[in-house]
């Protein structure tokens, strides 16, 4: 399954002092496996979780998730 957006969660974690997946998961209120699935682009999070991730990095939603459209 390819999602119509890419994400910069891994990159944002790196620039947030190598924040661990578990630390991000705790902040967002999901499991570490869910963060992992989001990073790999396997799982499309709800809008609420997407916002929570952006807030965890103190940034805007569009800085973390970028819409690229459906692959032809």
């Amino acid at each position: 399954m390819s999602l119509p957006f890419i994400n910069k969660v891994r990159e944002k974690r790196f620039f947030a002092n190598e924040m661990t997946q578990q630390a991000l998961a705790d902040k967002v209120g999901v499991t570490r496996q869910t963060i992992m699935a989001i990073e790999k682009g396997k799982y499309s999070p709800s809008l609420e979780v997407a916002f929570r991730i952006a807030v965890a990095f103190n940034t805007h939603l569009e800085d973390v998730f970028i819409y690229v459209g459906d692959a032809e």
Binding site: G29, T31, Q33, T34, Y43, P45, S46, E48, V49
Partner: peptide
């Protein structure tokens, strides 16, 4: 910790 958290949206 995981048991206390319960199911997240993906679960």
């Amino acid at each position: 910790k995981a048991a206390e958290m319960g199911a997240d949206e993906r679960d």
